[in-house]
Design a protein around this nucleic acid. Sequence first.
DNA 1: TATTAATAGTTAATATATTAACTAAAGCCC
DNA 2: GGGCTTTAGTTAATATATTAACTATTAATA
Lengths: 151, 151
Amino acid sequence: MAIKELNNSLPMMLYKALDTIMPKFRIIFKEFGITETQARVLRILWQHQRIALNELSSLTLITPPSLVGVIDRMELNNLVKRNHSSADRRKTIINLTKKGKELESRVLPKVAKVYEEIESSLDNKELDNILTLLEKISLIDRKKGKEKNGC
Amino acid sequence: MAIKELNNSLPMMLYKALDTIMPKFRIIFKEFGITETQARVLRILWQHQRIALNELSSLTLITPPSLVGVIDRMELNNLVKRNHSSADRRKTIINLTKKGKELESRVLPKVAKVYEEIESSLDNKELDNILTLLEKISLIDRKKGKEKNGC
DNA sequence: TATTAATAGTTAATATATTAACTAAAGCCC
DNA sequence: GGGCTTTAGTTAATATATTAACTATTAATA
């Protein structure tokens, strides 16, 4: 019931949490001339080096129409490069450039410090707790056939 | 430590949770020709009827530059009307119109149903829990002088 | 294999978000 | 009361987000 009380609703509280923590990260990203969204893309590319746009979309939670523009600008900034799959000519492969790769070692340490600041404001249990609960929320729709493995 | 593992980071999990629940609400808002952001504004106005733009900004978490455009479009759609404070001529007062007011009784019941759907996917404890934790995160910056009431 | 359905990427139109800068109006202070 | 500071609102420039629609391929199938 508490959830419906307007300013304390789940959506509003989620936004409020993001409004509190994201500016801390954006300050860092800005030092390197990238946006928060672009940083999300880079984070995935630092793991995969090269990846199809549709997979990148899934992993970053950035919808394809939005991602197209993001990649456009990152390509202009020499952070990534588009290639095309020969196996499936529909696919666009996003490749990390040297410039994009080099950012990793410079950005991650600073990002880690912000994480530490956030962590230090919460108990370890609380952090695990909230991540678990957020995960549960994000899976709400995947259980229509509550029964077994309706698959 | 779990927090740093990229796709399970706190920011990403917050976004993921929002990506799961907000589309459910947007479908409703769309029926009435309003956006999610405009709905946030309306929700506050349903409580206050009339309110200064800067207070509206605080309560909705919409920054003033963004809110200006939102109010522009809501005014074009006859949902709100701007007035100016005679006491403080800098202030813009946002007034709810009859059309804006009428939406309340039509939108809220449908929104409540979505809340119920979300609630039914979580235990009561879990819901209270996550709201409490989100609140704690949103207050991270307000305790620099950890000591007492450094004011 | 021609047809139909599904997938990947993109474009277009509109609405927001973010940051910096600018104007007007109050408040303050000597 | 003139000058300085703060507050409220706005504009401008750029980057994203959202939804619908469209193109090129590929897969699936009668």
